[in-house]
Write a protein that binds this DNA or RNA. Structure first.
Lengths: 353, 353
DNA sequence: CTGTTAGCGCTTTCAG
DNA sequence: CTGAAAGCGCTAACAG
């Protein structure tokens, strides 16, 4: 057959409007073989300088660039690092920004991949994504908030804020327990005694730790926990809103609510608004994450900050070390500190300023 | 090298710790040929239900998932849409969030690609990226803030906020001229008469339009423009900071500064802080973009909002239409409205409240 | 119903 | 110094 023919004239800028230029076309146009073109591109020895010049000129003229896919399939190394996310939402995009910061100067490129909330994007997406891209498209991967860490997969992988228990994977997390304590202690210091909590997904350790922090703070302050004041929010806006509502409609409602993440806190703010409850006048709200959106809320949200971008940076640098394998990564599990960001959604109970 | 051998026995869960599972291994394990496996995976007709069952079981057990790369290379359609960005920064990640919103339910997956500030990532990155991925990895692409739109490339491509003049590419932009007028009119309405501007990259139309809006607002208000009050910021933090400083150190400094984008406005805020100039007491600052970070600034930034996420959504929906080709895209150039978001960085001149 | 074969675009021996 | 050929993992004819 004669597929990558010279039937279509490719001289001059006649290629305007054509599809991708392949190496075949470059070769044909330059009057050499594809392997020669490949050698020129990859700076291999054994190409006459004149040939090289001609080929380079054709490449330039046709705007040729090697297909990432074809190259990846052939080569073991791709010089591309993958960031695998369940969805592009505030948390994962912050991680991405951090990853981009850290990738500079390493010579790697970054590909972020998401099945984007496809129906089948349930627990276990990370394993499928990994299989799809590892070893072919990317040299290593950062898993953002994976729900399982049992990837039993050999290769350079780092998990950021994994939602499940400890694993063999190197991980980067924030101090969930300490962060929750920071948030609830703040509320207690303000004078709150009936503090509700919109919890996260019960199957995720991060959620469990945040709840544990809530309990620890109460214990430390000698305040008994009223189990009625815990409502399941699942880290998602809708369940969280319902949970907040149920708490606020209690006969003896809480004067403050600690939400397991900012998305839940934002939903709590909405629920309060619907019920015409002033925040922070009659209700204080504390979130967790400090996603950029939390500062835009009304009122701006007091929240526990995770250094998300730094987590992304950390993950990339661990990953690059793993890939290049210069030396062993010392700390397999990195935990970064959380801090409290006090904004306008918290105040002393009873409307006292 | 003989990496993907069958030398390593693959029965049972012996694969723990191995690299990617390939179709070969699945086939071997199931005792069938690769084409049969392929047929099972792609639901092709002509496979005995028993065979299908066995193969499915093996796939499950081995955790096999087809390589995106190999599949892409073979197929014309990949069901993946690419978002090509120069870097993952606030603007592009907002677009990404919008793209993710819009991708849901379309059956497409999303891949975001960035060379991540590599040294050679100068003007023209979009052409190279496009060549790398179009036609192989992705079915279509969204170009975020490309510096050239002369891609002369056949295929489904949509540009978001292109920095250069009109092109044949479908584009999604915000109303830069109107937005700039909004921002500067606000300053003028507040009583400012000496308004400086930290301009953007002179080669980009978006920057030119914002400067034009600045001039138009002055003209409309009958205020002459003092050319001394325009300083080049290039859309980048460092140059912008220097530009702001030079403005503020003028013998007769401006009482307000309009920055060509939020990054520049944030840098202006920093410059003011360094010079111990109170904002908004002695200086008002208006930005452009309304990236999430602008609300976190001190003081929170008054800025012209571009509906960035919506731009991402719009781009994806245009692209999907282009790809499926059901019907022609009616509006090739979509321009979305900008709005003014007044926060705390602007006030009347002279410290008057 | 199943396996064999021929590539997708590229890199890499290995002959010429 | 250059090109022919093999093959990365997969799919799509086409035989058996």
């Amino acid at each position: 057959m004669e597929p990558t023919d010279t039937a279509v004239p490719v001289h001059g800028d006649a290629r305007r409007g054509m599809g991708r230029v392949t190496m075949q076309q470059v070769a044909a146009e330059a009057g050499v073989s594809v392997s020669t073109v490949s050698k020129v591109i990859n700076d291999r020895y054994g190409v006459a300088s004149e040939t090289s010049r001609v080929v380079t000129e054709v490449i330039e003229r046709l705007g040729y660039e090697a297909s990432l896919v074809a190259r990846s399939l052939r080569n073991r190394r791709t010089n591309v690092i993958g960031v695998l996310v369940a969805d592009f939402e505030p948390f994962s995009t912050e991680v991405l920004k951090g990853a981009a910061d850290a990738i500079r100067g390493t010579g790697y490129e970054l590909v972020a991949y998401s099945a984007g909330g496809r129906v089948d994007a349930h627990v276990g997406w990370e394993r499928r994504y990994l299989s799809r891209v590892m070893g072919t498209l990317v040299d290593g991967a950062v898993l953002v908030t994976p729900t399982i860490t049992e990837v039993q997969y050999e290769g350079p992988i780092v998990a950021v804020d994994p939602h499940t228990g400890p694993s063999d994977l190197p991980t980067v997390t924030a101090d969930n327990l300490g962060g929750a304590r920071l948030g609830v202690d703040h509320l207690i210091a303000l004078g709150h005694r009936r503090i509700g909590m919109v919890t996260g997904r019960p199957d995720l350790v991060s959620a469990q730790l945040r709840e544990q922090g809530y309990r620890d703070s109460h214990a430390a302050a000698g305040i008994p926990v009223d189990e009625q004041l815990l409502a399941a929010g699942a880290f998602e806006p809708e369940p969280a809103r319902a949970a907040a509502r149920s708490l606020l409609e209690l006969a003896d409602p809480p004067t403050a609510i600690f939400a397991a993440n900012d998305l839940s806190a934002l939903a709590t703010l909405e629920a309060a608004a619907e019920l015409d409850i002033d925040v922070p006048g009659r209700l204080s709200v504390v979130g967790f994450d400090n996603i950029p959106e939390s500062a835009l809320a009304h009122p701006p949200l007091t929240t526990v900050q995770q250094p998300i971008r730094q987590m992304g940076r950390e993950a990339i640098s661990m990953l690059v070390t793993l890939i290049t394998g210069d030396h062993v990564v010392e700390e397999v599990h990195v935990s970064l500190d959380t801090t409290l960001v006090v904004r306008r959604s918290t105040a002393a109970p009873g409307g006292a300023s």
